[in-house]
Write a protein that binds this DNA or RNA. Structure first.
Lengths: 150, 150
DNA sequence: CGAAATTACATAGGCAACCTATATAGTTTG
DNA sequence: CAAACTATATAGGTTGCCTATGTAATTTCG
């Protein structure tokens, strides 16, 4: 099936364009981590690192940064004092909310410019896109695309 | 339309998963640059930088790296001796070919696992995805997703 | 025509986000 | 209870981008 090639180019190009065009406040991985915490609740630092596909020391640094910005907090784990549980703060939840709104707005603005035919086709492909993603690694956390890396 | 939010998450998650899962030989931007050169032929370094959305000094470094790997070459521009024309070498063309094949294979392997319904929906959405990308910045170059950054 | 402004690229230095290797504190196990 | 293991932190390196600035070639215009 050669549409896989075209599909790859289309998806990649779209996301790169989206990411490049926007200013960044925090890294993609940081945003994804916040989103994961929002979905799952407090998590061990090491589990977070695995979920996000980065090494544990990198997650230590990332969490330290988010903590400095007040978006997450470290908590002790009663029962195993080696463990650090990373939890969203209220400010972190607020941040996620604002960020998602911005991302949705950005995408909506693009989608509004599509023909109705295109919009319908995209909506119809949504489950397929989700399935594709699930087929890859374990589920990666996700946030809408806004205020991202380049 | 709230599907824009879901769509954003789906697209972003898919591509990040795809990129993260694969070893990288060259950066996303380097790959994209090769692809651009393949489509357009030799280009000025500054024009390339603009097309790829990076600063000119960054493109200088990037081209130097590609040149060291033998994938592109610098040529003088008869008529304006300030200009450096960046051109794909034969090795660069070979590299792109191999890379695209790998990327297509990778995507095809995923797509083959989808239901026929999903596959059909994806294929139908291809034009819409292309249009979305075009709506963003100027056209970004593209390569299939393989051997990428993280 | 020739000095000043402009243009194209390169160089220098910095930062962010990852990495591997290793240290430290706490827990489990034979 | 010492040895092995586990969870996190620290140290130091690499890559890919950035801004500021330098140099050489070209264009503009008094």
């Amino acid at each position: 099936m050669d549409s896989s090639q075209a599909l790859g180019e289309a998806l990649y190009g779209l996301v790169i364009a989206a990411i490049r065009g926007r200013a960044r406040e925090i890294s993609l991985t940081s945003a994804s981590t916040l989103s994961t915490l929002s979905r799952t609740g407090p998590q061990r630092l090491t589990d977070l690192a695995t979920a996000e596909g980065i090494a544990q020391p990198s997650m230590t640094t990332l969490v330290t940064g988010l903590e400095r910005n007040g978006l997450v907090e470290r908590r002790p784990d009663a029962g195993d004092r080696r463990v650090v549980l990373v939890a969203l703060t209220e400010a972190g939840r607020d941040y996620l909310r604002r960020r998602r709104q911005t991302g949705a707005d950005w995408f909506a603005a693009l989608i509004d410019q599509l023909s109705e035919e295109d919009t319908t086709a995209l909506a119809a492909a949504l489950p397929a896109l989700d399935h594709l993603r699930e087929l890859d690694g374990p589920q990666r956390a996700m946030t809408s695309i806004s205020e991202e890396n380049r």
